[in-house]
């Protein structure tokens, strides 16, 4: 399966929310990184068919999705940002409703619901009210509804926002498992969410795709530019003003700063292995 986005542009009046976005995606997890307002949700809305691009086209296996009509929607699963669903519905009721929306034949409804609940480890919550589910469980229910139609493309918009660390790890594992035979596009501004599970990262800034590649490839972009340096407390301010300081960690009476810089910031600093967050910072702090 191949999903190709060609020269996607979206304008709201004079404002350009997405500018000449292009990418070719296949099975696996893709992390869509960017600050709030970078254009992630606009791109997702275009991808799932609720927003029309001003320019450009999307091809699925070489066919323009506009030609496919609702058949394209059958191949998509979507989890929106901060979904609340219906608090008065039970879990099974909600999933049955989603089956109706996705036009899943009645004969398949029960088996599909059992299948997806098992996949997201929510079988025990089958008869629970949606309003009684925890934030993490509700997000897993969101994944469950997204995969009810066995989609080829799974689009997740900020799926881990507001989750505790345990739930985030559980969530990442579920996504990893699902990506075996699907294209998973995970939009987030939380780098660790995609760092270890993404096949490729797409970084959006001000509506433009500024970087694309595997985490390792992206990390190579800042290789030799990430430094650790130990400073005294009264020096911190000066360092923060002069360099891109990614992290400040308190040690015994001193502070360890992580800095992204083309040159060694001082003789005291030493080079360290870069991470994806360093890449992210180097782009957005420019």
């Amino acid at each position: 399966m191949e999903l190709r986005l060609e020269h996607i542009k979206k304008r709201y009046g004079k404002q350009c929310a997405l500018d000449d976005f292009g990418a070719t995606l296949s099975e696996g997890v893709y992390g869509l990184l960017g600050h709030n307002g970078a254009g992630k949700t606009t791109l997702i809305s275009i991808l799932i068919g609720i927003l029309e691009a001003t320019e450009g086209r999307i091809l699925l296996d070489g066919v323009d999705v506009k030609q496919m009509g609702t058949r394209y929607l059958d191949r998509i699963g979507y989890l929106p940002q901060y979904p609340l669903f219906y608090k008065n519905f039970r879990t099974d009721e909600f999933l049955k409703y989603m089956c109706a929306l996705k036009a899943i034949p009645r004969s398949l409804v029960s088996s599909r619901i059992e299948e997806v609940l098992e996949q997201v480890n929510l079988t025990a919550a089958y008869k629970k009210r949606v309003g009684a589910l925890s934030g993490g469980m509700r997000q897993r229910l969101g994944i469950a509804q997204a995969i009810l139609n066995r989609p080829d493309i799974l689009v997740l918009d900020e799926p881990t926002a507001g989750l505790d660390p345990g739930e985030r790890i559980r969530f990442r594992n579920i996504i990893s498992r699902l990506s075996k035979d699907k294209l998973v596009l995970l939009a987030t501004h939380i780098v660790p969410d995609v760092e270890h599970i993404a096949k490729e990262i797409l970084i959006l800034n001000k509506g433009r795709l500024v970087m694309q590649g595997s985490p390792e490839q992206l990390e190579k972009q800042v290789e030799g530019k990430v430094w650790d340096v130990i400073v005294a407390e009264d020096e911190i301010e000066e360092w923060v003003e002069s360099y891109q300081v990614r992290n400040v960690k308190r040690l015994d009476g001193e502070f360890l700063l992580r800095i992204v810089s083309d040159e060694a910031p001082s003789g005291r600093s030493h080079q360290v292995r870069p991470s994806l967050e360093d890449v992210f910072l180097s782009i957005f702090e420019k």
Partner: peptide
């Protein structure tokens, strides 16, 4: 809209057509 279900509906076959 408050529950973000509108986007889910609009991205599903029946939701787009019959809702």
């Amino acid at each position: 809209k408050e529950t973000k279900m509108d986007d889910l509906m609009m991205s599903s076959r029946r939701g787009k057509g019959n809702m």
